[in-house]
Amino acid sequence: MALSSEKRAELLRRLNALTQNLTNTTDASTATGGDLLDLNLPGLSLDIDLPNLGSLFPSTPNSIRSLLSSLVGKQVVIATPYDPQLSGTVLSVESDYVVLVETDGSLDYVNISKIETVTAL
C-alpha cells in the first residue's frame, strides 16, 4: 500500500518528533548498569530498561539541532513542509535556524522546528 505524499510527510514529522522525544538516561536504581529508555507519547508512557545502549551508540545525536551541529561544513539535504529537497552545505546552526549555502552561493535560512528530515550526502 503506497502512502500519499501528505500521509508520508505526516509520518516523517511524527517520526522526527519521536526521535526528538527519546531520551536515554542511566537508571541508578538498577544494578545492571543498563540504560532506561523513557518514551512518552499522548496516551502512552513506556519505561524500558535496555542494557548498555550508551556504549553501542556513544555519538548518536539526540535531536535535529545536534545532528545539524555535527554536520557543519558538510553537504546535506533537508526536507521541510515547504520544500522537500533543500540541499547545500551546513554553514552554521543557530538557536532556532540553520544556514545552508547552496552550490550557487545563495544562502537558505531554515527554521529548525520545520525540518522533517536531514540526510547527509
Rank of each mutant, 00 (worst) to 15 (best):
A2M: 11
A2V: 08
L3R: 12
L3K: 10
S5Q: 14
E6P: 00
K7W: 02
K7E: 15
K7Q: 14
R8C: 04
L11S: 00
L11R: 08
L12R: 09
R13S: 13
R14H: 05
R14W: 06
R14Q: 11
R14E: 06
N16M: 04
N16R: 09
A17I: 05
Q20Y: 00
L22F: 09
T23Y: 00
N24C: 11
N24K: 10
N24I: 08
T25R: 13
T25N: 14
T26F: 01
T26A: 14
D27T: 01
A28H: 07
A31N: 05
T32R: 05
G33K: 05
G33L: 06
G33R: 04
L36G: 01
L37P: 01
D38H: 05
L39P: 00
L41P: 07
P42A: 10
G43M: 03
L44N: 03
S45D: 04
S45Y: 01
L46H: 14
L46T: 03
L46F: 14
D47H: 14
I48H: 09
N52D: 15
N52T: 11
S55M: 04
F57I: 12
P58G: 08
S59G: 01
P61D: 07
S66N: 04
L67S: 11
L67P: 09
S70T: 15
L71Q: 03
L71H: 05
K74P: 01
K74D: 09
V76W: 02
I78D: 06
I78P: 06
P81Y: 06
Y82K: 13
Y82F: 09
D83S: 13
Q85D: 15
Q85Y: 07
Q85T: 07
T89D: 06
V90D: 06
V90L: 07
E94L: 11
S95D: 11
D96V: 02
Y97W: 00
Y97E: 09
T103Y: 03
G105F: 13
G105H: 12
S106Q: 11
L107K: 14
D108R: 13
Y109M: 12
I112H: 06
S113C: 01
S113P: 01
K114E: 10
K114W: 02
I115H: 09
E116M: 12
